[in-house]
Design a protein around this nucleic acid. Structure first.
Lengths: 232, 232
DNA sequence: ACCTGAACACCGTTCAAGT
DNA sequence: ACCTGAACACCGTTCAAGT
């Protein structure tokens, strides 16, 4: 009936985070949820930091797995959009997910190695390697930033204020701020629209001949873009 | 000689954060730094959460002040770029600044009201109000995401590994990932390049006639863009 | 191998008491 | 008005001891 294992501990920790929030995620509360004493967890984990690292790793592994399942299309734009949606969805699954799980060093090389096929896709689409790296980095940054903002609005603990309350709180003037607040949409629609803008920017910076791989040589690296060996 | 005030407490807390990191930012350590007992702080602050909120407010107020000092240019692109640089610079001032201080509810309406002049600038440049809101939101998200990543690499506590160590850690294969790691630049240059990409995207989504304000009416809101009254 | 029980140093917070 | 001293419940972590 017991069988406390690392995986079960981490899974329970992610549940506890969602149920009670980060402040309530204590070693003792976690142990109690697992029907065990706090000290028992220290046989499986070195300390609480290792638990948090493992939680991050699990979340990022889920991103990697979901992203690997995306079939390559003929459009890098669609592929990158799919990656962005998966990353957002996984962050959204966890309370404060973007803030907590972004920008953490991953302990599992397999997760970083998953970038390989994406770099291959993008270089095949005509990006230089340096550009392809920028694409992934920039999209990741965008998703992290927008989901942090999103989760502040939708998952913050206390009272969500209405637009009317906010208008009153803003006081006199600031009419554009108030009007913008009323125009503002949320959720998927807002995300898709802003994602489109970022992709437009990448499009412009990207492959010279959009549909077919170019022979252009990157002046910074001297690396041929279409001729790279793909280890896939 | 004493004179413990809210402002001094918050300033000392920001110092302590930079000196020792978030985990070491305890009420007791903060009190000790101020030459006072922990319980003394509770006369000035309701609880630790209020301290953290005040710290966020101070950081965001500095952003607002620095951003207000930016003279409007004839180019919305330059103005927005200047905002992005200021936001990044303020986050970079504080250890884990982007993670800690982004996506927090601001307690001071004056800070939110500072958005007014930016919305005015952007609508005057030909953006609809909804678009202008997107511009600021998207740029903010981008900066938050990229600085979180940046601070993980440059300010994380333990051993920074070299490229060679990372290559070994990655194991066999993943040649593109390794090559990209070696091509990767850091700091201002990387930021400016990626910022340019985002601005390109906003450019494309933006004003129909780039240099002069257009008469275009937003189909979503019916708000005339160039004819908005600017309370400034 | 896996967990308990007890202990340690430390934490945020409260509150009566001092000045 | 502003701070101290003492206390409370709780925290992460260690470790001898149990099975």
């Amino acid at each position: 009936m017991k069988g406390i294992t690392r995986e079960r501990i981490v899974a329970a920790a992610l549940e506890l985070l969602n149920d009670e929030g980060m402040d309530a995620l204590t070693v003792r509360a976690l142990a109690s949820r697992l029907g065990v004493r706090a000290s028992a967890l220290y046989w499986h984990l070195r300390n609480k930091q290792e638990l948090l690292d493992e939680m991050s790793t699990v979340v990022m592994r889920r991103v990697t797995d979901a992203v690997s399942a995306i079939p390559p299309s003929e459009s890098w734009r669609d592929d990158v959009a799919a990656y962005a949606r998966v990353l957002r969805a996984e962050y959204l699954r966890h309370r404060e997910g973007a803030r907590i799980f972004s920008g953490r060093r991953v302990s599992d090389p397999e997760i970083v190695r998953a970038k390989e096929s994406w770099l291959a896709r993008l270089t095949a689409a005509g990006f230089t390697l340096a550009e392809a790296d920028d694409v992934l980095d920039l999209i990741t940054a965008f998703v992290v930033g927008i989901v942090i903002e999103e989760q502040e609005r939708t998952q913050s603990s206390p009272g969500r204020y209405s637009l009317a309350e906010r208008d009153a709180w803003l006081g006199e003037g600031a009419e554009l701020v108030k009007a913008a607040g009323h125009l503002r949409d949320q959720g998927d629609a807002r995300f898709e629209r802003q994602l489109g803008i970022v992709l437009d920017g990448l499009d412009r910076a990207g492959p010279r001949s959009p549909s077919s791989p170019s022979e252009v040589t990157d002046t910074r690296t001297g690396t041929g873009t279409a001729a790279v060996d793909l280890p896939t």
